[in-house]
Design a protein around this nucleic acid. Sequence first.
DNA 1: CAAAAAAATTAACTAAAGTTAATTACTGTT
DNA 2: AACAGTAATTAACTTTAGTTAATTTTTTTG
Lengths: 196, 196
Amino acid sequence: MIDFEKLKHVFPFFQELSTDDVFNFLEHTRIVKLNAGDIFLKQGSRKSNIYFVKQGLIRSFLVNEKGEEITNRIRYENQAMSCYEIDMLNEPSRFNLQALEPTELIVMDVKTMQQIVHGNPKLEPGLRFFVNSSLVEALSAVDDFMLLSAEQRYLKFIKEHPELLNRIPNKYIANVLGITPQSLSRIRKRIATKKQ
Amino acid sequence: MIDFEKLKHVFPFFQELSTDDVFNFLEHTRIVKLNAGDIFLKQGSRKSNIYFVKQGLIRSFLVNEKGEEITNRIRYENQAMSCYEIDMLNEPSRFNLQALEPTELIVMDVKTMQQIVHGNPKLEPGLRFFVNSSLVEALSAVDDFMLLSAEQRYLKFIKEHPELLNRIPNKYIANVLGITPQSLSRIRKRIATKKQ
DNA sequence: CAAAAAAATTAACTAAAGTTAATTACTGTT
DNA sequence: AACAGTAATTAACTTTAGTTAATTTTTTTG
């Protein structure tokens, strides 16, 4: 059973909607419960879903030519993950999606979602807000890579996501910062010795 | 006078619109003609416009604490530039916008554009396509910073934007790649000697 | 065309990051 | 508590990038 009031908090754009609107929307979603470690989308897949994290923590990663896993995105409560290659470029996913904790996802087919949202103008602002926010986040991340050093990016990361520090291994953070775990370890040491 | 047929090519999302729809949209735009070097938006500004490049070449750049100009975005024909800080975060622009060639821009206030587009459902798909494409581009750029070396990013850049190579100085390309002009010069030398 | 300005390259040096491998610390399990 | 597996750190070394400055090349402009 879906907790309607809780969902309004999870998805701010539900706030202005009637119960009917929300239920009509949620009718086309399904809840997926995952254990830590479960991979719910594999590299090469073309399943075009959008995944809202209701509870838990997920990551997107690929396996490079050396066989190493490289994590490129981390999402937690109230955030959404999608694979832009599948939705927008009509290509198979380059990435795997994996739960890192016991996780509950609200899953919806992207095409279905678009049909429903565009069929009900009251839903449009919510989707727009979501896409626009994603765009701002991505553009801002690009600027950070261009303008900040790895150390500065790390400091910004822990400032903006302090709650993640104790939930994910540093090696995932290193990947997201675009550096190796060894390099992050050195940066952390540098920062620690500076502070004293 | 606006060349309607040309515009349909410039903005693919106009293709399916009636002449009336397009003129209604364009009524709220203005054409701005710039000389090479003209700065048309200054760091700190809150003018929330969207700039479509009809002809020419523009860049976004900031001046860092050392007084150096750092270019973070380059846009040319058929592309659009906006300042996400102003539109989405309600903050003053961190960047300057400058024409690098004699340039013609179609300028429109973002709020006005949103009103018009949301007031005419036929215009919605065009805006959505634009925002979604921007999102894919930005996410892809983030992935490139995480997964590719500076040399690989340069090779990808010249492959995807060969027409830019002879239109902008290498130092701007270096900035966009997140490296110094000196470092790009070394990379170019490395590539040149590899090829023989 | 010549001078001036800007851009690109090169060099020498320093700092940071990648690589490989070993060691230490931590976590989860039985 | 002991073990195994994973993560984090450290070290030694290599490669790449940043920094500062000089030099060469290219572009602009009077």
